[in-house]
Nucleic acid binder design. Structure first.
Lengths: 252, 252
DNA sequence: CGTAGTCGACGAACAGTGTTCGTAATCGCG
DNA sequence: CGCGATTACGAACACTGTTCGTCGACTACG
């Protein structure tokens, strides 16, 4: 029929990258739930079965999307002088990466994070902690701890954001209205059973996601430095010492 | 209600409670994904449509299940002498409640927590913090922070647990084998790009969920007490954290 | 230039999901 | 007993992820 010489084929070939691209843009515009193998195929002007030549299944697609997202996180060069600020910034950057790709956090919660980028982020976090004199075991667990928390925040924000887009089509459901609604919900609680909630309704609803996040990372870091000196369980103190000295943890 | 006459009707009446009961037992035995309106109806020997007379939709069912779960959490009487241990215990109890009902954590992640029991738990947590002299704003945000973290831990554990039940049917996939597999995964990473990961493979995989959770709640509480004194929007928690600990280098 | 073979594309179908409609059975009450 | 209100439920709708088998186009070799 046609000579496929001078021009590329009319129908652009399907690739994994194009699929992931489409998934991310669809997710960003219509939310995580709007991304299905069918809607994705429709977006790419093909059938659902075509996707499976490039993507094993839904879970792998989520992981590919995630990989893209975390790849955007800038990884710092550890500086012992300001390692604490670097840790905070890294956490902020991870959260921002999620927020820049709405819905990606929902993909993150469903899969075991064994991605390349995730490991790199963990490596970076642990390097920062070690630069701050934190014991390896504490650094490793702290890394686990923070990534879990950041993921949870991103996930909650993701759901919140999608709720906003799904209001009764009239108002975009501005923050103030929802805030007031939430405040009055706390104030209307039975004050004999929930006296504190009622009294602190204002305080409970104060602060947006950023405020709460900043508070949390402050607490986490303060807790790390406060407890890292004393946190050692007797039975693995030797392992920690060995690991921090020559880098090779001794067995037994 | 109660059975009116001498004998209950042959076919036991459907109630919201029976539905939630069935959902919880099904979830406990076969995992969260095994619970669908259809499988639930099958379990109750009826059709899917019948459930909708007692339960608005899937989301409400999840919320009802959650309410049951959190209702089991024992709420402490605040004691200023040992409020910190009480906070930790409360967090442990919340996690245990999730763990006692496998799959419930997955239901928790999908809904905005406006349940009765959730509010009670928050009330209790804030009361403990206030008993410890924490400022209301910090107490409120700390409550938010911890509940998010505990939920994330429970969720991750939930997924992990269900993965275990879905192995290749041969072995029950004991922890040791998975641990070794994970350790060697870290050790097999390209050591030029991930030197720390490779060196600390042992440390990374050390500790089960309980160890990590205990570490995290230690850090959170230490961070709360360390930063609560100075945390008043000046957000200079680091200064105080450094001041409370001698061996740590001061951050500029 | 022709043919064989490989591999990507894809329509159709399977088994499952949440949810709704209309109807049938049953219950409570007068 | 009879009637109105409530509950039960089969069938159907519009989805979901995934697989099978076929069809077409492109590649490589003779």
């Amino acid at each position: 029929m046609r000579a496929p010489r001078t021009q590329p084929p009319r129908k652009t070939r399907l690739t994994t990258e194009r699929i992931v691209d489409a998934a991310m843009s669809l997710m960003a515009s219509d939310g995580y739930d709007a991304v299905s193998m069918r809607s994705l195929a429709r977006e790419l002007e093909t059938g659902p079965a075509s996707l499976y030549t490039h993507v094993a299944n839904r879970e792998e697609l989520d992981q590919l999307v995630l990989e893209r997202v975390v790849a955007e996180v800038p990884l710092p060069e550890p500086d012992p002088e300001r390692w604490q600020e670097q840790v905070k910034q890294l956490l902020r950057d991870i959260l921002d990466a999620y927020r820049n790709h709405p819905g990606s956090a929902r993909a993150a919660m469903g899969t075991i994070p064994t991605s390349e980028g995730g490991i790199a982020g963990a490596e970076s976090m642990i390097a920062l902690c070690l630069a701050g004199g934190i014991a390896p075991q504490a650094a490793a667990w702290f890394c686990d701890f923070t990534s879990l928390y950041v993921g949870a925040v991103a996930y909650e924000q993701s759901i919140w954001a999608e709720r906003e887009n799904t209001t009764i089509a009239g108002e975009p459901a501005d923050h103030e209205a929802l805030d007031k609604q939430l405040t009055s919900y706390f104030e209307d609680l039975p004050h004999d059973r929930f006296p504190l909630m009622r009294a602190f309704a204002q305080v409970m609803t104060t602060g947006d996601l950023t405020d709460r996040f900043e508070f949390a990372i402050d607490v986490m870091l303060a807790g790390l430095v406060a407890s890292s000196g004393s946190y050692r369980r007797d039975d693995d103190a030797e392992v920690l010492a060995a690991a921090s000295l020559d880098g090779q943890p001794g067995p037994s």
